[in-house]
């Protein structure tokens, strides 16, 4: 069974950093979105198993995505990967239902630990 991954970040480099840190069985089916609006369009129409989400983005930001997912009952594990590491921001995203907060630039071992914790590895 394959796992459908969505990576949402406005930075091409940041998307690649996540993609390269994923094991092959997760990266081979990864889709990419460059802002929150694109991510929501994919989440509404496709069966996504896990979302990697940036916060500071144009159009719809990461908090907006989490709020909309909550409002529309779109349920899947969301790993927020952000440079905005303020404790209040971390608690905001966890309150909105994110599975974990990971700081940028994303580290391979942190990502692996969190994927293991949530049963993706």
């Amino acid at each position: 069974m394959s796992t459908n991954v969505l990576i949402c970040d406005d930075s091409n480099l940041a998307r690649k950093q996540v993609l390269r840190s994923l094991p092959e069985n997760l990266s081979k089916n990864a889709q990419l979105a460059t802002n929150g609006e694109e991510a929501l369009a994919i989440l509404r129409t496709q069966d996504i198993d896990v979302l990697f989400l940036d916060l500071t983005m144009p159009v719809i930001d990461g908090l907006g995505v989490l709020q909309t997912m909550k409002d529309e009952s779109i349920k899947l594990p969301v790993f927020v990967i952000s440079a905005d590491v303020q404790p209040e921001m971390q608690s905001r995203v966890l309150d909105l239902g994110a599975a974990a907060f990971l700081r940028k630039p994303v580290q391979l071992n942190t990502l692996t630990e969190n994927l293991q914790l949530h049963g993706f590895l």
């Binding site: 930075s11 480099l13 940041a14 952000s82 440079a83 905005d84 590491v85 303020q86 940028k104 630039p105």
Partner: peptide, 11 residues
């Protein structure tokens, strides 16, 4: 992206 990470830590 380098600036984003730095500004996140500074904030």
């Amino acid at each position: 992206e380098l600036i984003n990470v730095a500004m996140g830590q500074a904030s």
